[in-house]
């Protein structure tokens, strides 16, 4: 580290850039070694008919053409996924934020509460799934029994064509503990003096939340938003375990269909082309989010 001390031969900007690249090097090595190759391979595979047991065969755009013109499951699974993303992502960000605000309070036993709220995120899915079957059980399940107390007849949840997706969304929301922790960590970065200043200015709680907490939290919320979108487009495990895509393919999400193509029907080439369509769609959405971010995300470090 000491060899940085002698007289710099490089300009400051060049040195900074060099340092930047050096700091990125470990990740860069991993990227070059373990990511770029498989990614390129999957891209090439997208133009091939590769059914694993038979030799791969170049078919050009055939997979893509079939996907867009002759595969109603592709459209349907994309529709199911969009539904999931549109409903789940906003709820997820809101629930995680509210939970974090709640758990940021000074209350007796707050450590225990934080741990308990996080529990669903770490219970193995096989153990959680059985419980959820019972929570959602239409006749005597927890939710519908509760609704019956207020004279509402609950839906069939996982057995219903219209309520199967909301049921899975509910399940996913229950695992908001992970995002909650990120927000909780983000809240610690809000400097106390800002609250004090706002208070002196006579701001009430809502105003303080709106003008201090939210802006200071915006980088964290932005992160959660971007990641939720990326992850929701790839929603898989809950549906795979709980419904297998049913009933009548109402929870056949994009990744579930992709998985089926790849590992059940052994259509690896087709699955690869599906992956690339998903990639382009999500990338476009993410770029839009980054563009819009300048309007609402506040970075302390960029102010000086």
């Amino acid at each position: 580290m000491t060899n940085a001390q002698p007289k710099p031969r490089l300009t400051n900007a060049a040195r900074e850039a060099l340092t930047c690249y050096l700091f990125l090097l470990p990740w860069g090595i991993g990227f070059l070694a373990f990511v770029i190759g498989p990614v390129a391979a999957s891209f090439v595979l997208g133009f091939m008919d590769y059914e694993i047991v038979t030799p791969a065969r170049w078919v050009g755009l055939a997979n893509y053409i079939e996907l867009f013109t002759d595969d109603q499951r592709f459209r349907m699974s994309m529709g199911n996924t969009l539904y999931y993303v549109l409903v789940f992502v906003p709820l997820h960000v809101i629930v995680a934020t509210l939970l974090a605000l709640l758990l940021n309070q000074k209350a007796r036993g707050i450590a225990v509460y934080r741990t308990l709220f996080y529990v669903p995120s770490i219970v193995p899915i096989v153990a959680g799934a059985i419980l959820w079957v019972w929570i959602l059980q239409p006749e005597w399940g927890l939710i519908n029994s509760t609704l019956r107390l207020v004279k509402i007849e609950g839906p069939l949840w996982l057995a219903s064509l219209t309520w199967s997706k909301p049921a899975l969304i509910l399940m996913a929301l229950w695992g908001s503990g992970a995002a909650m922790i990120i927000v909780l960590a983000g809240l610690q970065g809000v400097p106390q003096h800002l609250y004090e200043a706002a208070e002196i200015d006579g701001a009430n709680r809502w105003q303080r939340f709106q003008h201090v907490t939210l802006p200071m939290l915006s980088p964290t919320l932005f992160f959660i938003l971007v990641l939720s979108v990326i992850a929701s487009f790839q929603v898989f495990t809950t549906a795979y375990v709980m419904t297998g895509g049913g009933p009548a393919e109402s929870t056949l999400f994009y990744m579930l269909y992709l998985y089926r193509r790849a590992f059940v029907l052994l259509d690896m080439g087709y699955a690869a082309s599906m992956a690339w369509i998903l990639f382009v769609a999500v990338l476009a959405l993410t770029l839009v989010q980054f563009k819009l971010a300048s309007r609402w995300v506040y970075y302390e470090a960029e102010q000086s």
Partner: peptide, 17 residues
């Protein structure tokens, strides 16, 4: 062999790291 390139890169990377 289609994928060999990535393996070679990986090998290099590892030797280096």
């Amino acid at each position: 062999s289609l994928l060999k390139n990535s393996a070679a890169v990986a090998g290099l990377a590892l030797a280096a790291s």
